[in-house]
Design a protein around this nucleic acid. Structure first.
Lengths: 208, 208
DNA sequence: CCGCATCCGGGGCGATACTG
DNA sequence: CAGTATCGCCCCGGATGCGG
């Protein structure tokens, strides 16, 4: 992108990451960790392949990510954020918080389960840091998410664990409304959400 | 801008404010308050006039700003942020913080004094909330800035006050380095910065 | 002067095809 | 799998015009 040519922090930040798709690429890497080119593409529906390649080049030159080849068995090239790239998490968190009021209706937008791992990590806190760790399995689409609270830290990642304390299944907006306590368990259940297991586990999570 | 078509907070935020120049327009309004079209243009060197008009239309439709006509004497149309638009301050603060390492050299970028009022307000704190209010005049270019600490709150605005406790004059990067304590008073003085008045006043300000 | 609208050239973007 | 190549289009940048 063309530089704004302004000695101003905001303008310089936008010079670096203001290009279309750039922050969404960083989102993918923050949510999933190091990724291969094709997996990046799957998490960015709508991106043109030449644009993805171009953006990765720019991000590498700016020092926000590096390309690595994974060790011999199943050699593959993956893309990984540098600490400087990871520092964009706070920017993305601020944008996501601001977008809250825009998330009411899903419409016909694309949905990916792993897009929820980032907001879950960023906006939830562990309400009982001294109690044993718990895990909740979230089924919002084909890609299950595991949400964990352990010693005061909340993590979220794609995939399952053997014996989650609870399992919540339903449309994404209802699952998120339950976890952020915008809606009660009774309310989301009446709207079609299914919840099984030890439901007191859900009390371990609340908005930050 | 074309929508990303993704049900994701970041993507929806970028749908709304990801266009080129949009956040810089918000910066101007956050830094200066309500502005006329022409004054906006002066704070955005490099913007094409048709683009500014177009962005203002979009921002108005999105509910981030409103156009108002000021009362009879000296009638003029001004543009003012709505609360929803002002809420972008946190986004801009995060981007500005991330941009810190990019601000080392000014190069031949354009500079405007009022661009500093926002970072001064956002990143400085009052170290002695119980003491009487103080003010410092900053002269970094033709547009003087007044920095004030009053009852724990730090404010910054364009213009002067009658009797500032101290006056600091010099290149912007040195003034900012002094206030954020990246450099000592002796260091910035040896590099050409001038400071007069009660210099203990500067101790009232520190990074947040 | 203020607040735009119009016109035009260039480049970033989007979609598809293709390749080592 | 990991990109490159190509092409049309629209957004952006710069200049000018113009009514209030």
């Amino acid at each position: 992108m063309r530089s704004y040519g302004q000695y101003c922090g905001l303008a310089r930040a936008l010079d670096a990451i203001g290009d279309r798709w750039t922050l969404l690429i960083v989102r993918e890497l923050l949510a999933c960790g190091p990724l291969r080119y094709t997996d990046l593409q799957r998490g960015l529906p709508g991106i043109a392949t030449n644009l993805l390649a171009g953006r990765l080049d720019e991000l590498e030159r700016s020092g926000l990510l590096v390309r690595q080849t994974t060790p011999p068995p199943a050699a593959a090239t993956v893309v990984r954020l540098t600490p400087r790239g990871e520092a964009l998490e706070e920017v993305i968190a601020a944008l996501g918080r601001w977008a809250g009021p825009l998330m009411d209706e899903v419409g016909d937008d694309a949905v990916r389960g792993h897009w929820y791992t980032l907001p879950l990590r960023l906006y939830l806190r562990d309400t009982a840091p001294t109690r044993p760790e718990v895990s909740v399995e979230l089924r919002m689409d084909d890609e299950p998410i595991t949400l964990e609270a352990r010693a005061g830290r909340v993590t979220a990642h794609v995939g399952t664990v053997p014996h989650p304390n609870a399992i919540v299944a339903g449309p994404p907006d209802l699952v998120m409304a339950l976890l952020t306590r915008r809606l009660s368990l009774a309310q989301v259940r009446s709207r079609g959400l299914s919840a099984t297991g030890d439901l007191r586990t859900l009390q371990r999570f609340d908005r930050k």
